[in-house]
Simulated scan of single mutants.
Amino acid sequence: MVGLIGINCGMTSIFSKNGKNIPCTIIKIYPCYIIQIKTIKTDGYFSVQLGIIDKKKKHTCKSLQGHFKKSGVTPKKKLLEFKSKIFYPELKLGSIININSFLEGEYVDVKSFSKGKGFQGVVKRHGFSGVGESSHGQHNRLRSPGSIGAGSDPSRVFKGKKMAGRMGGKNVTIKNIKILKIDSDNNFLILKGSIPGNKKSYLMIKKKYEITNFKYSRKFY
């Protein structure tokens, strides 16, 4: 089993057997269809491309229609590629991977894009404390970065200096998240704690030590 594609439905909390309130995230799992299987012989590496949520044929370009036709699957809205070092001979084109691949109590890795915060200053972006207390003659300096380098020598700013800039919107992996509950009837996966991304964002869920890179679309469905 290579993994599953999920959609973030938001957070809630559940009570454990000893009465402790545990924050958790609810993930909607759709049936994942195997669209393409890449092998070392043909592509130089092993991976499996999964697709979820049906899409109208008239909204799919002809090149993708041919891509889906090879696997015998109707067009899908979202495609994600799961790379792995392990070969899975039981996987076949057009077959389905569902929520029953996971078990309650096991640990998974979740990968998604974090929320974009836009252009932020050093206090929010890097946790700076600012210049210090305000005093006479000090104007709007409380949240400033302060000095960014010497003048005469080296007469430049070193690369990698923590400064203001765009924050968030990065590919983030949260490892070892425990599965608290699996609702097979409604296809909901309940994970302990928080995970990156907005509501309705796509998530890549893999068993421990199986998470890898994937191409991400910022369009939400």
Rank of each mutant, 00 (worst) to 15 (best):
M11R: 04
I14L: 15
S16R: 05
K17P: 00
N18G: 04
G19L: 10
N21I: 15
N21R: 14
I22A: 01
P23C: 07
T25N: 01
I26R: 12
I26E: 12
I29L: 03
I34Y: 03
Q36T: 11
D43H: 15
Y45M: 08
L50A: 02
K57I: 15
H59F: 09
S63Y: 13
F68L: 05
S71A: 15
V73Y: 02
L79P: 00
L79Y: 04
G94H: 09
I99G: 00
F102N: 01
L103I: 06
S112F: 09
S112I: 03
K115Q: 11
V123G: 04
R125L: 10
H126N: 08
F128P: 03
G130Y: 03
S134C: 03
S135E: 10
Q138P: 00
R141E: 12
L142Q: 14
G146R: 04
G151W: 13
K159W: 04
K161M: 12
M163F: 05
A164S: 15
A164M: 14
G165I: 04
G165L: 10
V172W: 02
T173W: 02
N176D: 13
I177G: 00
I177D: 00
N186H: 13
L189V: 08
L189W: 08
G197D: 10
G197H: 05
N198Q: 09
S201N: 14
Y202K: 04
Y202Q: 06
Y202F: 14
M204F: 12
K207T: 12
E210N: 11
T212H: 13
Y216F: 15
K219I: 15
